[in-house]
Amino acid sequence: MLKDLVTPENANVFVGKLGDILEKAIGKPLGYAINWGRIWSLWPVHIETACCSVEFGAASSPRYDVERFGIIEAFGSLRQCDLIVVQGTITRKMAPRLRLVYDQMPEPKYVIAMGACAITGGLYFDSYNVLPGIDGVIPVDVYVPGCPPRPETLIQGCILLQEKIKRMKARTFV
């Protein structure tokens, strides 16, 4: 029967339909699975932009140990990373480099703005060489306030990011 229905002329239509049905059936569970994989393997880029990197280092120290949350310590190449933690002030000299790093990362990518300088400019709101926040350079997912934030606050921000990823549509990036 099926053999009679499928002719070379309409084979494409059938394959497309089959794909649609499959996607309806397993798309949603697959999305969950993809997101589940993403939230427990966030790899941050190793880009230190200013002094908040001290507390970022403390967050991966034995006391706070962000690796418990699957945020692997930043050692990989940036082609394998999907999280960028902007650790502090972005100066005018650094901004093009930050954008360059962001553009080289593969999708999906998430951004955490860490510290007052990365959010609004913070202490350096009237400096001649500091950007007023990184929103103009790259899109931000989670803001972590403080100067510098405590490692607990950073971990809380990471948990927020994981919740956000859970709620995101996984297929927008596939």
Binding site: I119, V142, Y143, P145, T153, L154, L160
Partner: peptide, 12 residues
């Protein structure tokens, strides 16, 4: 209290 992280600037 130090747990202040937020999704948006307005939330801060």
């Amino acid at each position: 209290d130090y747990e202040l992280s937020s999704f948006s600037k307005e939330g801060l």
